[in-house]
């Protein structure tokens, strides 16, 4: 029993999902990646460290769960009977879902420390860590508390427009400074296909993510289009991958999941 790693001892891979910019789809991508990895037969955990705006519980439709204690610590919330997808989020600790968590940095750092050390994940193939936007307390707290454990790397999410890629460049600088490997960049909200006439409009421009990947010499993992079916699946907490296996978005997400697995496996 390795006390050094504690509750993370049986977690094989840890991946952070980061973006300097808010609302670009970090939680969406985290959720969909987790579902895709599960479909590939993996055991997956999600740690949601967005303390002021936790979205994952709703996206997985486990909004009003309670967290229980066991000998090893907090038991994560499982989304299914097979316990193949586990989740921990501050959303489970709030009495009222509209309660604001008005905390300054030190309190956020303390809770993240607890999330990392005290959740009894058990055996997991992948632990995905969903983060809030920015490069501040939460991000430093996660990196520092995971220092003892090996973090495989970070996936950076951006939307195509320059206003967003500008913030993601700063996130890459954060990864360099903290020694995090960049597994790759995902461009989200890339083009919208009109359901009426099939015309593709690039609402938030196009190609910014790929350009950024070239500019910063990072791998490009792929594009996810704007898809109202994806937005409504997340709203209702349905498994998009099961509901729409034929959509182009499904293909894009699956491809990204496999690229991430390959990238991690190659490094060993």
């Amino acid at each position: 029993f390795s006390t050094e790693k504690g509750n993370l001892a049986q977690v094989r891979h840890v991946v952070l999902v980061l973006s300097g910019k808010g609302g670009v789809g970090k939680s969406t991508l985290t959720t969909e990646l987790a579902l895709a990895l599960r479909q590939a037969g993996k055991k997956v955990g999600i740690l949601d460290v967005d303390l002021c705006g936790p979205s994952i519980p709703r996206m997985l439709s486990v909004g009003r769960q309670e967290v229980h204690q066991c000998d090893a610590g907090w038991v994560p919330v499982y989304t299914d009977a097979h316990k193949s997808l586990a989740l921990m989020s501050i959303g489970f600790l709030l009495e009222n879902p509209d309660d604001a968590v008005i905390w300054r940095g030190p309190k956020k750092t303390a809770l993240i420390g607890q999330f990392v050390s005290d959740v009894a994940w058990g055996e997991l193939d992948y632990l995905l860590v969903d983060t809030p936007p920015g490069t501040s307390d939460e991000h430093l707290a996660v990196v520092e508390s995971l220092r003892k454990h090996r973090v495989d790397g970070a996936i950076l999410v951006t939307t195509p427009q320059a206003v967003s890629t500008g913030d993601v460049r700063r996130e890459i600088a954060f990864c360099k400074k903290t020694g995090l490997r960049v597994l790759g960049i995902v461009e989200n909200m890339s083009g919208f296909v009109c359901p009426h006439c099939s015309e593709c409009t690039n609402i938030f421009s196009k190609g910014g993510g790929e350009e950024l990947a070239k500019l910063t010499d990072s791998p490009f993992l792929g594009c996810v289009p704007l898809d109202p079916q994806l937005s409504s699946s997340l709203e209702e907490g349905r498994d998009f991958l099961q509901a729409f296996p034929d959509s182009a978005t499904f293909g894009a997400i699956n491809q990204i999941a496999h690229a991430v697995m390959t990238s991690i496996a190659e490094r060993g």
């Binding site: 009109c194 009426h196 409009t201 609402i203 704007l226 109202p228 937005s231 409504s232």
Partner: peptide, 18 residues
């Protein structure tokens, strides 16, 4: 809402489900 510049039909990209 988003109005397609080609067919002028409106779509809800981020649907107001609630």
């Amino acid at each position: 809402g988003f109005v397609c510049p080609k067919c002028k039909n409106k779509s809800q990209i981020f649907p107001p489900t609630t």
